[in-house]
Design a protein around this nucleic acid. Structure first.
Length: 273
DNA sequence: TGATATGTTATCTT
DNA sequence: CAAGATAACATATC
C-alpha cells in the first residue's frame, strides 16, 4: 500500500496546494486517528509538506507539525473551496477534516491503522533522527546496503522491508526490485554476493523512481489515491507483484506466489536465484 | 463463512 | 539477551 513512491506523490501535490494556507476548524470524527492537542494547530500557517520514509510531515508556524502515517488504507485528499461539491471525498471512513482558508483536506482511513500526531519541532527532530536513511537519500549507498544485508540471516526481502534498517520499501517495491535483480526473495540476506548487492541497490533506486514517475501504484486490492483523489499508474508496469500464474517477462516461465513473513511474495523461480 | 490483504509494533519463541 | 517468527490491529472483499 502506500510505500515511498505513493507517499512522495501525495507530498508533492499537498505541498503545492497547502503551502501558505491557514488552518481553521479541525473536525475529529475518529478520536483514534488524531493524537495531540487539536486546538494548538488552529490558526497556524502551513509552511510546507515534507516526507521521511513513508511518513508525511506538514510543517506549521509556531514550531508545530502534523506527522502522518497512512499505514495501509490511509488517504490524504484535498478539495479547494472553488470545487462544486464541498463534500467531495467524504465517506464513512473520513476520520479528520482540516478546514483551510482556501479549501480543506481530509484524512480518510478505512482500517484505522493510520494516524496523525501533532508534535513540535523538537519531537519531530528526535523521531526523524532515529530513523535510518531512505532509499532515495544520498546516504543509501551500495556500501550501506551491503552492511545492512551482511548483518542479517533473514530472507533478503524481509530485510529490505524493515523500516528500522532502510526507509521506504514495502511489499510491492521489494518484490519488483528483487525480480529486476534476479534475486530469490527467500535468499538469506548475508548470502548475497557483492555484485548482486550492487545490482540490487541500482534496481531499488530504479524501481522506486519509476514508482514516483508513474504517481505510485494502486494494486487491485488497494485503495491508494493521491492528494487529488486519483489512483496511481505504476501497477501497469508490475513485472512480479500480483502476477502469479502469468508468464515471466524475462524467461516465459510462470511467476510463483508464496508467503514470506506473512506477506504475499511473487517471483520467477527460473530467473531469481 | 473463513481466508486473505496490508505496515508496523507488540509479543512470543527459539 | 537477541534474533527471528508470528500475532495483533480493522474491515472489505473474494
Amino acid at each position: 500500500m502506500p510505500e515511498l513512491p505513493e507517499v512522495e506523490t501525495i507530498r508533492r501535490q499537498l505541498d503545492k496546494v497547502l503551502a501558505g494556507q491557514v488552518i481553521g476548524n479541525v473536525q475529529v470524527l475518529q478520536k483514534k486517528s488524531l493524537q495531540g492537542e487539536t486546538l494548538k494547530v488552529v490558526g497556524k500557517r502551513i509552511l510546507g509538506v515534507e516526507r521521511k520514509a513513508k511518513m508525511i510531515i506538514i510543517r506549521l508556524s509556531g514550531e508545530l507539525n502534523l506527522l502522518i502515517h497512512l499505514k495501509m488504507t490511509g488517504q490524504l485528499v484535498y478539495t479547494s473551496k472553488f470545487e462544486a461539491r464541498s463534500t467531495k471525498f467524504e465517506t464513512k471512513y473520513t476520520r479528520v477534516i482540516f478546514e483551510l482558508d482556501k479549501g480543506r483536506f481530509l484524512f480518510n482511513d478505512l482500517r484505522l491503522f493510520g494516524w496523525i500526531k501533532i508534535v513540535n519541532d523538537k519531537q519531530i527532530k528526535e523521531i526523524l533522527g532515529k530513523m535510518p536513511p531512505d532509499v532515495v537519500d544520498k546516504e543509501f549507498t551500495p556500501h550501506l546496503l551491503q552492511n545492512i544485508l551482511r548483518s542479517s540471516g533473514q530472507a533478503v526481502k524481509i530485510v529490505l522491508m524493515d523500516q528500522q534498517k532502510i526507509g521506504g520499501i514495502g511489499n510491492i517495491y521489494a518484490n519488483e526490485s528483487l525480480f529486476a535483480s534476479g534475486i530469490n526473495p527467500t535468499r538469506r540476506a548475508n548470502k548475497i554476493t557483492k555484485e548482486q548487492v550492487k545490482k540490487l541497490h541500482e534496481n531499488i533506486k530504479k524501481v522506486i523512481n519509476q514508482g514516483i514517475k508513474y504517481g505510485g501504484s494502486t494494486a487491485s486490492d488497494e485503495n491508494f489515491v493521491n492528494a487529488l483523489g486519483k489512483p496511481g499508474k505504476y501497477q501497469e508496469h508490475f513485472l512480479a507483484y500480483e502476477r502469479q500464474g502469468k508468464q515471466c517477462h524475462k524467461c516465459g516461465s510462470v511467476i510463483k506466489k508464496i508467503k514470506l513473513g506473512g506477506r504475499g511474495t511473487y517471483f520467477c523461480q527460473k530467473c531469481q536465484k
